[in-house]
Structure formats: structure tokens, C-alpha cells
Design a protein around this nucleic acid. Structure first.
Length: 821
DNA sequence: GAAGTGGATATACC
DNA sequence: ACTGGTATATCCACTTC
């Protein structure tokens, strides 16, 4: 049989001691297809230099005799081949040692304790990864496949029996096809409960949303007749009904928001308690949960044959750095990406919900799934492209951090370089790496505070990435000793050297950067979501590659390479700053990869011409580009002292667009009153070029504060609880607020955002935390606190630029310096 | 008990 | 634990006089 097939989910099983992969996907007609296949299993033994042929022959014979019996599984070395390979960019002779079962490779590696072998590698990739590499059968790519249909034949112990698929094929051959559209079947879900602690309360309702399908299953009664509500007898029936609908719709993706951490484990726990099998898997299996590691890190919920996607996790790694949203809450994220919000419903215990309120609860529940469904559609092209680029199953790609994504990309591209994969660091190695001191990072220019006119900004495109490529910085190119024709730079008082012989890591990164450039260009010419997603994936990869080499968990960890990257980049930007000044401009600020300078008497055209000239002088693939021209820019002092504050500035361009960095305006842990006031002041100062209107505005706000005319919403301070309350050594205001919430049984949001305000107190209290009140508590805001600790700090150093001491205004004293406005 | 300082904590920039 | 370092600012905790 021959069909077109797209692999979606990968799984594996053992049969007669051997490993088989089971891939679930679709064909062009939308039929669900299961593909079963196997591949050779092997690991690598890297031999020491200069071994004689006879020695190798003897060694091979020894290895071929290895036999193991682990947990009743018979594994043996099946054959051994001698190969010319590269290991860490060095040419080596290596033995490719084939064995029966992938799970036993580690034990075989332990048996390879021969003096002729210097490294044992390639046994820690995981069978799915190993299979994808070996057979080049990559996820979410269309393939033409050929094979035999297993028609309940009983082959592989009848693995196809009872599997909810249309066809099950034993693979014979496959080839990749041209990219074409794939529209997956998606089902979004969301639950509502009384107790937020997993499994502690009853599940009141579940909503399900798919194409032309909207449903809320509940055992509570609606007030009016709502056509999307399906009423069942009790919680047990609800769970059964949920399973029934999921199986009937049989989606490729079951999608939730924070569902790894909440919905799926909750369903599983309740199902176990009520002894209802949560048979969601295509093979009737229940979701399995994997702990990602120790501590508080999230587990993952895996359903056999259906890809469970927790959108929050993907959005966090792929998008959060570019988002406007201040939290990853479903509400904010939906507002930003869908222009839609959650429905209004104030959480309360079901015993306190009035009869007529249930309908809006059902609508609320349904709408959460509508949002999750919408977000999936919005981010689908990104998930698709990430999966294709990293070549790992969607399940992992949507959960991985950027560190793992970089590593996946490397692992799946090693064969182009004939490279044997490096191993994962051991626990001890990780501990050792983590104990190492921080190395010196980026350069930040100390600005002279002031309001400037006509500012231009240049920045390096993929700065650290292009630095790594230009100077060939990586684990495999680091030289042990001083060398003549090598890149070298001083780190911590010592010179380090990197070979000029291209290493696979920098070369891979070169390709990533080139692809990013290419797709960005194509996107510009003819935009579409796929190109956008692809361009974005390569951009993120390029940016994360530097951090990866300095990351203690990386296979290709190299502190020297990371430190050298920062050092080369620092040297480079300082040289460029010098050149810009020498040309007659004046640099006023710089941070890591960007330089802001006054163009003075020069024109924009001349500035751009100079940029071209600079680019010609840059080494390797390093490149400067214009970030923009700005009509005015504002830099202020630090709060204490007179020196210029770094990472804090505001710009306005010709179109009146503001670009504000670091100021309280952009910090979510300041109250809206202070943030909006500061934003307004910055705008007025940048638009007018003086402080007159800004000062007037400030006075108005101060007056309002004093007259208690500020709304409660405006004075709320929001801070995130970063760890369990007990672990705090310092009891700061937000910890007090969190404690109060616990006492009053107010649930802490999923994002752990704590909200409070500072109130007037009867007695005189000196500590801020003694004045903390929750939004629901009665009390008036503390005028003194909001004036001196919120408003004043937010505007003080802006007016300082104009030599105006604003303390007098906020404290209500008579102005001496300025006369009257 | 005020004043000064360092540590803990949160958040932002690139 | 799940990319890196640099920086600001607040408030508490502690020391000193």
C-alpha cells in the first residue's frame, strides 16, 4: 500500500526484545494512520589515536561477544563496524556498535571499558530521537510511504488491535514530499472546580471546543435552556462523557491552557478517585505524567496517539520576550493575540453560587476553551515550524525551553558534519559547572543625563551569534594551548585561543543566521504566516545559541566560548563607539549590541552612508543596522547620586511614537497611578522639549491624590510571588499580602500575582508592610506613601534634567525655584 | 532610635 | 534546572553610634 502520510506523534514499544516505533499521523484524505517501523540500534566507541589494525581487530572481536540479560531481555552486540568519523570536529576512528535493544545501550557502554576506547557516545539520545535521525522520518512533514497493512494480523503481538486508527501500516519505505498544507483536528478543553489544589475538589464542568463543536458537560443545572450545556448525573458521569466526546472527535491535538499543571492532572486524579478509566489514548490508555525534574518544575501529561498541548508553555518560550502582556494569564494573552478576553465571572465556591449565576459560569467555562482554541490557531504555524526546524515531535517542541530547542537542532544536524554526538553532562558535571563563577558579560555605556535632540541608533544584527561565527567560538574549536594562527582574546587575565579551522557548532550557527536572513527577506517580499514563523524560529535559535554554550545543562557547554563571545563583542562595540565619535558624532549611550548617538550637524543620509562604511570594516559576518532616527531622547540620573542611569531611557520618533525602556512606566510592580503619570510626563517632555506642560500635569495629579480622588484600581501594586511563602527570608509587603490572602482563603492566581495597596493606619507605623491591605479590605490609601514612594520616585529624575527639584511639589511645600504656574 | 549599609527580592534590558 | 550577564530600585534586616 502506498499513501501520503504526515507523522504527528511518536511512541515506541518492545517486541521480542527489539524496539519498534509507532507513529500516529494522517493521510491526505484525513484518515488516521498508524505506522510501525524499526531501525538499527547502535552506539559509538571513539578509539584512541594511532591504533594498529590488529589491535582494532582484537578489540572488535571482544566487543562482538558482549551479551546482556537485563530484566529478562536478551541483548547482544550484533555487529561492529569501523568508521571514519568526527568527534568534536576532530577526525577519529570509531566503532559503530550495533545492539538489540536501545534501552540496553547504556549497559553495553558500561562494558566497553577498554584502554583502546577513549569515549563512548550516542546512547543517550532517546529512541525516538535516534529513530528520527536514523530514518530521516521527521515530524509534520509530508511523506510518501509504502508498506503492508496490518489487518488485525496479530503481528507484533496484535499491537494494531484495539487501536483507534483507520489504517495500520508496517513501513517499508518512505520519501519526503514537497511541503503542503496540513490542517490538524483540534479540540480545546477547560475545567472548572471548587478547590484549586489538584484533585481536592469536585470537577463541576468541562468545556470542549472544536470546529463546529461547542459543549459544556456539567452535573449542575442551568437556569435557562442553553444549547451547549449537556447535563449529566454526577462527576463520574461527567468524566465518562468527557472521555466519550474526546474519543468521538478523535483530535490530533488536545489543547489546554496551563493544562499540564492543572486540567489534565486534575482530571486524572479525580478519575482515579472515582475509579473511572480516563481512556483518552488511541490504545485506550490513560494519560501518563512525567516529572520534568526535581523541585517545583511542571510535569507533563502525555496521551498516547493524541498530542496534548499546553499552550502556555509554548507561548512562554517562543513568544513571552516579545509580548506586551505583563503576565501569561489566558486573559491577557488572549487580549493581545485574539483581541478577546475571558468572560466575567467572579470565582466562588459552588455552594455560594446562586441559581441564576450558573448560566454565566457555563458561558465563562465555554469561552475559556474558545480562547484556547483561538490561540492554538494563532500559534499553529509557529508550532509547526518549530517542529520542522528542531525535528523533534510537537509534544516535546511545545514544552521545551530554548536551551533544549538549540540542542535538538544540533543533534538533528550533526550528520551533515559526520559528527558523533556529545553526551549529556552527568549530575556531578552539572554541579561543577554551576559552581563556576559568572564570567564578564556585556558593556553598558554610562549616559550623561539630559534631553537630547536628533538621536540615531545602530545595532548589531544577531550580535552574539555573528560573533560566534566570525571568531569560530565553540567547545570543539577551543585550543588547549597558545597557537599562532588562531583567534585569541583575554578572559579573566588569561588569553584563550580558538582554531580557525571551522567547527561544526559555529558552522551550524552560520547556516541558522543565513536562513534567518533569507526567510526574513522572503517574508518582506511576500508575507505569509509560515515564513513569519520560520523566520522567527531561526531568529530565536540564533539568539539562544550564545546562552546555550554557557548553559550548565548543555551537551556542548563551553564556558570559555561563552565568555569569549561576550569579550569579542565587547571589544567590537567599543571600537565602533570610538569610530562613531571620531567621525564627528557623539555617542551618548550603548548597551550590549546597540549604540545611540547624536547626529549633530550631519544629515540622515550622511549617517546612513557612514553606516555602510562601518559595515565594510567589520570582520566576518558581523553587521550593523539602523535601528532608527529619533527626534528626541531622554536619559536620567539614577535615583541616588548624579550619575546617569543605565537601561533606562525614552525616545520619540518623527511619527510621535514613543520607545520607553526601563522606566517605571514599563515595570509591572509599580501602581498604575505612578506608571501612567510617568508615561504622560515622558510624552510631554519629549514632545515639547521642555518641562512646562509636564510640571502642570504633575501638579494636577498631586492635587487629586491629596484630595483622595484616585480610584482604587489606580493604586494597586502587583508583585509576583516567586516561591512558597515559607521560603522567604525577608518579609516584604507582597509576602504579607500573600499571607493575608491565605488567611482569608482568597485563591492566589495561577500566575501567582499578588495585589495590594498601602493604607493609612491609626497608629504611626514605620514599616511599609505594616500598612499593606488587600483590594477587598476596607481602608483609605496612604497619601504620604503614594506621593513620596510612588509618584515622586517616578518623576523626580525626569525633572532633575531641567534642574527642577520636584520634592517640594509632591510634599506640598511652597515652591521657591520656579515662580508660579 | 536614627542613620547607614548590605542582602533579599522583583523586574527590566539586551 | 531547562539559554547568558548587567542593571535599577525597594524594602527589610542588621549594625553602629
Amino acid at each position: 500500500m502506498k499513501i501520503d502520510f504526515i507523522p504527528i506523534d511518536y511512541d515506541y514499544f518492545d517486541f521480542e526484545d527489539r524496539n519498534y516505533i509507532r507513529i500516529i499521523g494522517r493521510d491526505k484524505r484525513g484518515r488516521r494512520v498508524c505506522v510501525i517501523d524499526s531501525c538499527p540500534v547502535y552506539l559509538w566507541a571513539v578509539l584512541i589515536d594511532g591504533l594498529k589494525e590488529s589491535k582494532i581487530k582484537g578489540l572488535v572481536e571482544n566487543i562482538e561477544n558482549i551479551r546482556l540479560n537485563i530484566k529478562g531481555r536478551h541483548t547482544k552486540v550484533e555487529k561492529v563496524e569501523l568508521r571514519e568519523k568526527n568527534f568534536l570536529s576532530k577526525r577519529v576512528k570509531a566503532l559503530k556498535i550495533f545492539a538489540t535493544n536501545y534501552k540496553d545501550l547504556h549497559d553495553i557502554a558500561d562494558k566497553l571499558d577498554f584502554p583502546e576506547i577513549q569515549n563512548r557516545r550516542g546512547y543517550d539520545l532517546g529512541f525516538i530521537t535516534h529513530y528520527i535521525i536514523e530514518k530521516k522520518f521527521s515530524p509534520l512533514q509530508w511523506h510518501e510511504i509504502e508498506g503492508n497493512v496490518l489487518d488485525g494480523s496479530g503481528e507484533f503481538g496484535g499491537i494494531d488491535k484495539g487501536l483507534q486508527v483507520d489504517i495500520c501500516i508496517k513501513l517499508q519505505s518512505h520519501k519526503k514530499l514537497e511541503a503542503s498544507v496540513f490542517t490538524p483536528k483540534v479540540l480545546a478543553y477547560d475545567i472548572e472546580v471548587d478547590e484549586l489544589k489538584i484533585g481536592e475538589g469536585e470537577i463541576l464542568m468541562v468545556s470542549l471546543v472544536s470546529e463546529n463543536f461547542k459543549k459544556v458537560i456539567t452535573w449542575k443545572k442551568p437556569n435557562k435552556k442553553l444549547d451547549f450545556v449537556e447535563i449529566v448525573k454526577d462527576e463520574a458521569e461527567l468524566l465518562k462523557k468527557f472521555v466519550h466526546h474526546v474519543r468521538e472527535i478523535s483530535p490530533d491535538f488536545l489543547v489546554g491552557y496551563f493544562s499540564d499543571g492543572f486540567d489534565l492532572p486534575y482530571l486524572k486524579t479525580r478519575a482515579t478517585k472515582l475509579e473511572i478509566p480516563l481512556a483518552l489514548g488511541l490504545d485506550d490508555s490513560q494519560p501518563r505524567f512525567f516529572r520534568a525534574g526535581a523541585g517545583r518544575s511542571l510535569g507533563t501529561g502525555k496521551i498516547s496517539g493524541i498530542v496534548h498541548v499546553d499552550l502556555m508553555r509554548f507561548i512562554q518560550t517562543a513568544y513571552s520576550q516579545y509580548m506586551q502582556s505583563e503576565t501569561l494569564s489566558l486573559n491577557e494573552v488572549s487580549k493581545e493575540f485574539l483581541g478577546d478576553t475571558k468572560k466575567d465571572f467572579k470565582f466562588k465556591h459552588s455552594s455560594k453560587i446562586k441559581k441564576e449565576e450558573w448560566d454565566s459560569y457555563f458561558e465563562y467555562n465555554l469561552h475559556d476553551s474558545v480562547l484556547a482554541y483561538g490561540l492554538f490557531q494563532k500559534f499553529w504555524s509557529d508550532m509547526l515550524e518549530f517542529t520542522r526546524v528542531m525535528q523533534e515531535p510537537v509534544f516535546s517542541v511545545t514544552r521545551n525551553g530554548m536551551g533544549s530547542n538549540v540542542e535538538d537542532y544540533i543533534i538533528h544536524n550533526l550528520s551533515k558534519f559526520n559528527e558523533i554526538p556529545e553526551k549529556r553532562p552527568t549530575y556531578d558535571e552539572i554541579s561543577e559547572r554551576r559552581r563556576k563563577e559568572k564570567y564578564e558579560g556585556a558593556f553598558v555605556f554610562e549616559p550623561i543625563p539630559g534631553l537630547y535632540e536628533d538621536v540615531a541608533i545602530f545595532d548589531f544584527t544577531s550580535n552574539y551569534g555573528t560573533t560566534i561565527v566570525t571568531y569560530n567560538l565553540s567547545k570543539s574549536t577551543l585550543l588547549k594551548e597558545k597557537a599562532k594562527d588562531a583567534h585569541h582574546i583575554e578572559i579573566e587575565g588569561k588569553d584563550v585561543y580558538f582554531s580557525k579551522e571551522p567547527g561544526f557548532f559555529p558552522e551550524m550557527l552560520r547556516e541558522i543566521i543565513e536562513k534567518r536572513k533569507k526567510y526574513k527577506q522572503e517574508l518582506k517580499e511576500k508575507p505569509d504566516v509560515i515564513k513569519q514563523a520560520r523566520s522567527n524560529a531561526f531568529k530565536l535559535l540564533a539568539n539562544a545559541a550564545y546562552g546555550y554554550q554557557g548553559f550548565f545543562g548543555a551537551r556542548y557547554y563551553c564556558r570559555e566560548a561563552a565568555a569569549a563571545t561576550a569579550a569579542f563583542a565587547k571589544k567590537m562595540i567599543k571600537e565602533v563607539i570610538e569610530k562613531i565619535n571620531l567621525q564627528g558624532f557623539k555617542v551618548i549611550y550603548s548597551d550590549t549590541d546597540s549604540i545611540a548617538f547624536l547626529i549633530k550637524d550631519k544629515s540622515e543620509k550622511e549617517t546612513l552612508k557612514f553606516l555602510e562604511q562601518l559595515n565594510k570594516e567589520l570582520p566576518g559576518i558581523m553587521e550593523l543596522e539602523l535601528e532608527g532616527f529619533f527626534t528626541r531622547g531622554l536619559w536620567v540620573t539614577r535615583r541616588t547620586g548624579t550619575i546617569g542611569a543605565k537601561k533606562k531611557y525614552a525616545l520619540v520618533d518623527k511619527a510621535g511614537r514613543l520607545k520607553i525602556r526601563g522606566f517605571e512606566t514599563v515595570r509591572r510592580d509599580w501602581c498604575h497611578l505612578a506608571r501612567e503619570l510617568q508615561n504622560k510626563i515622558i510624552r510631554l517632555v519629549l514632545e515639547d522639549g521642555n518641562e512646562i506642560r509636564a510640571l502642570q500635569y504633575l501638579k494636577g495629579v498631586v492635587k487629586k491624590v491629596k484630595k483622595r480622588e484616585i480610584s482604587k484600581e489606580e493604586i494597586m501594586i502587583r508583585t509576583m510571588l516567586q516561591k512558597p511563602i515559607e521560603e522567604y527570608k525577608a518579609i516584604s509587603p507582597h509576602v504579607i499580602a500573600a499571607k493575608k490572602m491565605r488567611e482569608l482563603n482568597i485563591p492566589v492566581s495561577g500566575a501567582n500575582m499578588i495585589e495590594y495597596f498601602i493604607a493609612e493606619t491609626r497608629e504611626k507605623k514605620s514599616l511599609v508592610r505594616e500598612k499593606v491591605k488587600l483590594p477587598e479590605e476596607k481602608g483609605e490609601y496612604n497619601i504620604e506613601y503614594y506621593l513620596s514612594r510612588q509618584i515622586l520616585p517616578a518623576v523626580e529624575n525626569i525633572f532633575q534634567v531641567f534642574n527642577i527639584n520636584v520634592t517640594e511639589i509632591t510634599e506640598g511645600k511652597r515652591q521657591t525655584k520656579l515662580g508660579d504656574f
